[in-house]
Design a protein around this nucleic acid. Structure first.
Lengths: 223, 223
DNA sequence: GCCGACCAACCTGTCGACAATTCTAACGTC
DNA sequence: GACGTTAGAATTGTCGACAGGTTGGTCGGC
């Protein structure tokens, strides 16, 4: 029974990350180590190791002698993460448009120009995934792996709110196409501006979306 | 013996982070859990939890059944982190200069205008600390805690190279003062430009500094 | 009826133990 | 002398156990 071929900590890490990111664990809820260990049929040790990794990811918090807790949905934190996300995506955009290699850029534009028939109302999960992929691939053109890691971390943390944002504002897809046009013509300032309008959230917008998120977390039957 | 009041994992985490950040553990070197546990007079469990946190921090790597390893000094990674650092600090600058609250900005300018008598040759450790503080406080003016967390992570990862950069180029302090002037007059574009010149590293520069860093890590008596 | 003290169950913090695997080095062969 | 093999040592992966703190509820006093 001891000799698991697959990495136990990794299993626990991904399981827990998924539960926390999707808020299947409620915000602020304590994560019972023994319970999780029983669910995954492993001991508490790998669970704790995984939870400590999630601390560094900013996905769970920790209080001594009390345990690990699911992150809370904070309006200010979401706004902050959106601002950081703009910093990073904007920097990637500037870098990749300034760089010489136009082949990758053209390929990116080609790929996404004709891939945008999806509507949020169809399948929201798939739409969120596609949205993340679009932005990540755009950022990836700059060829900076470290930046991508940070962006993936941000994506995990804002995903729940992002989904609601995509549901609410149907224009997201059009903005992607405008962005593609600017990228295609290597118009850096236009691209930056579109990206900024695309990502800038007013305080009220974020507050509304976080409220909707919280409502949805606590009640499955919210419209 | 069991009842340590202080948090054991936290102790291990900070101890290990310090060792890895300062490369007192050599790049690529395996971190022997039992040895560390013996040194800190604790068991392996909290050590492993701390190490897992460092994984998420990007400070150690992990190979199944082989253990945890100190991060390697990668030229490309350093260059990438400097680029991300520019994204974040530049974003913070734009945000804080656009915001209304000038009081905090003035206080910042006042504080650092007259605090710059330090020279790299005096005490390099103190100088690096001061340099980090300057940049962090400048970024903090934007009031975005999430961004600061990311910057602190980057600082930990580039510190060893940053130190050499500060030793090599004596002009860093003058650039800080130019930056202060631009911030004082709320000249966003000038400030961005100065910051960019301040942080932009040529590929050769980074390569040289990483090489110097590696040399210094493996031999204490390098000039 | 309300509040605070006490108690029991639960949970975390940490440890030592053991199985499985990897590393090391001695050994023998070509 | 170089190289593959193989036993032995060292190290990781995981577990169960236990001490000590936390929580929540009950009971008695006011």
């Amino acid at each position: 029974m001891t000799g698991q071929l697959a990495n136990t900590v990794e299993t626990a890490y991904e399981y827990l990350r998924d539960r926390v990111v999707t808020f299947r664990v409620k915000p602020g809820e304590r994560l019972n180590e023994s319970e999780i260990a029983a669910t995954l049929t492993m001991s508490r040790a790998p669970i704790r190791e995984a939870l400590n990794r999630l601390i560094a990811d900013g996905l769970v918090s920790f209080e001594p002698r009390r345990g690990f807790f699911c992150r809370r949905l904070s309006i200010s934190e979401m706004a902050e993460l959106y601002a950081v996300r703009y910093d990073l995506e904007s920097g990637a955009l500037r870098q990749s448009l300034a760089a010489a290699d136009g082949g990758a850029i053209s390929a990116f534009v080609q790929k996404w120009r004709f891939a945008g028939a999806m509507r949020p109302s169809d399948d929201i999960d798939a739409f969120v995934t596609a949205d993340e992929a679009f932005h990540l691939e755009l950022a990836a053109l700059a060829g900076n792996a470290a930046r991508l890691k940070f962006l993936e971390n941000i994506n995990n943390r804002i995903r729940f709110v992002r989904r609601i944002n995509l549901e609410t504002r149907d224009g997201a897809l059009d903005e992607h196409h405008d962005l593609l046009d600017a990228v295609d013509t290597r118009d850096a300032t236009a691209a930056q501006q579109i990206l900024r309008n695309h990502l800038d959230r007013s305080a009220e917008e974020v507050r509304d979306q976080v409220q909707q998120a919280i409502a949805r977390i606590y009640a499955d039957d919210v419209a």
